[in-house]
Design a binder for these strands. Structure first.
Lengths: 176, 176
DNA sequence: CTGCTGATGTCATGAACTGACATCAGTCAG
DNA sequence: CTGACTGATGTCAGTTCATGACATCAGCAG
């Protein structure tokens, strides 16, 4: 992150990263699948938080309740993680580069897919589960973007609730 | 697409593609930003269809109406495009490779962003526009996936409407 | 001490890109 | 017609990313 912040993502070479870490390039590629992955390693843990929230919810919870449970757990995990400022720096690096944005989108798609899987495992019908899985990451992503906006001080969970409510308004109005 | 279908994406080299096309590798890279892009060139047109539908909608249309207008236009464009079978082949290649899935996600994110921009230009508030933009691609993507599923014969527009209704159910139930 | 295991280094190689410059066909003003 | 200009392509050299094969070395179990 130091090097990326200094010179930008493209300008820093893998050899440079490895050198700064005191290892060889070859060793770098044994720890990270590719150059981008160095910024995304460990995202499986966040995914597990979302999935567990769905899996561990009360047996009689409606789908909408599972959706909220997942969001609450995920939001909570992030809040207790490396903090908002770290997220801001990391995000600044990512949004400055399309390759990194691509990777982030893939990670989010996997998150969505994992949540969908957890819902299906609970017996939620396929299409409903799929849409709910997508909604979870949609709300999370949108709230996260606002959470790290400069000057924003509100809580991530609060922003998530607000986003969910807005979607509700949007689609219910359309249905009516 | 011939080469990708034959040998798989990773196994086919840019030199191979260029050779088959009767040009040099260097020429390939003058037409396509990178190896992946060869499968995604021309997506800006589809994006324009969505955006125009929003821009050209009646001045008094509610946001939910714009959302539907965009989806109808986009779905229509795809139906009249290269056809369902072409989409199936292309999709088979894409889903078989993570790098290609990444690129597809980026394209969809850009679509979403463009729709959001068109909504903002109409005076829709930022957050609403953003969520609506996301919803458009969410519904489109989900419906598209079912559209190209083996054995599926229903119309893309019909599948989109069904998806939108399902989201409505999901979030309105949560609000109630 | 011996042999195994895991992490790392070394080397060679291929494939993906990029910049600088050359070439060549069209075309358009004079 | 000629010569300058333009745009598309080719040539070539070089960088970076990524991977396979093999060597090395520390630590630990028997």
């Amino acid at each position: 992150m130091e090097l990326f912040a200094e010179d930008g993502y493209e300008a820093t070479t893998v050899a440079g990263i490895a050198g700064r870490a005191g290892v060889t390039e070859r060793t770098f590629f044994r720890h990270f699948a590719d150059k981008r992955e160095v910024l995304f390693a460990g995202e499986e843990q966040l995914q597990a938080v979302f999935v567990n929230a769905v899996t561990d919810a009360p047996a009689d919870a409606p789908v909408s309740g599972l959706l909220i449970a997942a969001l609450d757990a995920g939001g909570e995990a992030l809040r207790c993680g490396r903090g908002r400022d770290f997220a801001r720096v990391r995000n600044g690096i990512i949004v400055a580069n399309e390759q990194l944005r691509e990777r982030e989108l893939l990670k989010l798609a996997k998150l969505s897919h994992a949540v969908t899987g957890a819902l299906v495992a609970r017996g939620v019908p396929d299409m409903t589960a799929s849409l709910a899985g997508e909604l979870v990451t949609l709300v999370f992503r949108t709230a996260f973007a606002r959470w790290i906006a400069p000057g924003e001080t509100r809580d991530l969970l609060e922003l998530q609730r607000e986003g969910l409510a807005a979607i509700s308004d949007l689609t219910c109005a359309g249905a009516a």
